[in-house]
Amino acid sequence: MYVGTCPVNFISEALKWVVGLGMLFVLWEVAGQQSWLGKALPPLSSIVSYAMEPRSYELLMRSASITASNALYGFLIGSIVGWAIACSGQIWPPMKKGLDTLSTFVNAIPLIALGPLLIVTVGEQSTPMATAALAVFFTVFVAVLGGFERVPSVHDDVIRTYGVTRWRALCFIEFPNALPSLIDGLKLGASSAVLGAILGEWFGAPAGLGVLIVSAMQNFQINLLWSAAFLGTAMSGIGFFVLALLQQKLLPRLGW
């Protein structure tokens, strides 16, 4: 029925993006050419041609794939743990208060401060994954808890009138109700994961975009800095886009 309107929407949506980004890029190019912001903002064309040079291209890709895998694993671990812990509070309510406090506490500690601690405990190699996981954990945890809070009171009535066990209530009623919130949380978590991974790489990881950014800053390689930053942004963007697509396609099919 509405199949016909779908591509139109999609095209107009894509067009908006192209136009928006195009304008931004043109502005950037001009600003770079005219050196409005000095050397810190080179023209886009010089960044691109730098990134396309075989040597830097290979370096960038290798680093990006390491960061991507750190972010992805961190994302998976963080979201599964966040989801599982939020659910366990639902099954055993006394735990809920403690979990709330703990997670707020964990979130209040800046990741930067946790870095050295993680180096000592999980090692330099795994630190980026751990920081990514921590960054995602909180987002997902809070999102799922928020989802549980939005279970409509009529559904609570159903749970109570059928004398449903905590576990079945979670599986059949509470978790499905929290699903849209979970996906929202994952969407936000996608960029947190990339950010977390890059941050983790600053603490002496052997390779990755974070390492590249630190060394580019120290050696004032502006083109390299911008290329790495671009790749990081693109990564979060892709993650966000994939989850947004999931949200748009999956949720309506599930009745939302």
Binding site: V158, Y162, R168, F172, P176, W256
Partner: peptide, 27 residues
């Protein structure tokens, strides 16, 4: 057996599954 003023159906379940829900809830 209760049917309240607001229907309280699960939006993600088909009519069939909504009716089957009490069985599942009761195990």
């Amino acid at each position: 057996g209760i049917a309240m003023q607001e229907h309280g159906l699960m939006p993600w379940l088909s009519a069939w599954d909504n009716i089957a829900l009490p069985f599942r809830l009761a195990g």
